[in-house]
């Protein structure tokens, strides 16, 4: 018998601090699998952000830098410009990327910065106790939208891939999800493609991974996955929002 599924080497053999059913663990593994399959662990530098995934510097088996809240794309830019031959990725949540780090994200994309952003969107601030995020759905109850997000006063959930699709510099933008096995496999393929694009020097790549937060959605993990596959996917359609490779390769 041969092993058909095992822990990727790029994921350190340590316990993850995440809550039961938190999908960060799945996404960590997918990133690690992509790194392993491309054989790039020794040439990769990851950037951890602030939020639940802050400790990702303990989990990925490559060199890591931990960035201030929202600043990961700027930190990654600094690394990439210093070491253009290295593979540089950020791992960021939705509060980090789509609120405090919006400027860093948009401009890294606009510059076509040759980095890969893994954007985990679960619609809440988890680390600080379940506050409303820019991506929280309308009507969703959080600690800071206790009566449900009221779009009249609290605004609308932000669709990041659609926003970034307007930038010339973005080479690959995809929205994926981890609510079921098929979607998880698609997410993995998108992550691997993003890293491949970086290796090919094509420019900025971002894979949004719609994710579940059972704890702050106040749902059992299986129910959280159902909500993810339902109303969350309804608002955030899956798909490839930009693929410069496909565009140029066709020509």
């Amino acid at each position: 018998m041969t092993k058909v599924f095992t822990r990727p080497e790029a994921l350190n053999d340590v316990e993850l601090h995440y809550c039961p059913g938190c999908t960060h663990g799945i996404i960590h593994r997918l990133v690690a699998e992509a790194i392993d399959e491309l054989g790039i662990i020794g040439q990769t530098i990851g950037v951890a952000s602030v939020g639940c995934s802050v400790f990702s510097y303990n989990y990925f088996g490559c060199d890591m830098e931990q960035a201030a809240h929202g600043r990961a794309p700027a930190v990654a830019t600094g690394i990439k410009r210093a070491l253009p031959d290295r593979v540089v990725f950020t791992y960021q949540g939705d509060g980090d990327l789509a609120a405090i780090g919006t400027a860093e994200t948009v401009h890294a994309a606009s510059r076509g910065e040759n980095i890969t952003v893994i954007f985990v969107n679960n619609g809440v601030y988890g680390m600080t106790g379940g506050q409303m995020a820019p991506t929280t759905l309308a009507g969703q109850v959080t600690q800071t939208s206790p009566y449900g997000r009221d779009v009249k006063t609290q605004g609308y959930p932000l669709r990041v891939c659609e926003l970034l699709a307007q930038t010339e510099g973005a080479a690959f933008l995809a929205r994926t999800a981890v609510d079921n096995v098929k979607h998880i496999r698609e997410a993995k393929a998108a992550i691997k493609k993003a890293f491949t694009y970086q290796l090919e020097g094509r420019g900025f790549s971002l894979v949004e991974v719609l994710s579940a937060c059972p704890t702050y959605w106040a749902l059992p993990p299986a129910e959280a996955m159902k909500r993810l596959g339902g109303e969350v996917l309804d608002y955030y359609p899956l798909g490839v929002y930009k693929d410069k490779g496909a565009e140029t390769d066709e020509k």
Binding site: I45, R71, V75, T77, G78, I79, R86, A103
Partner: peptide, 18 residues
């Protein structure tokens, strides 16, 4: 950079890379 905030964080990244 797009701001002084980003510029100093780019410095952080590059300095961390040696």
């Amino acid at each position: 950079a797009e701001s002084e905030v980003s510029a100093i964080n780019m410095v952080y990244g590059a300095a961390g890379a040696g």
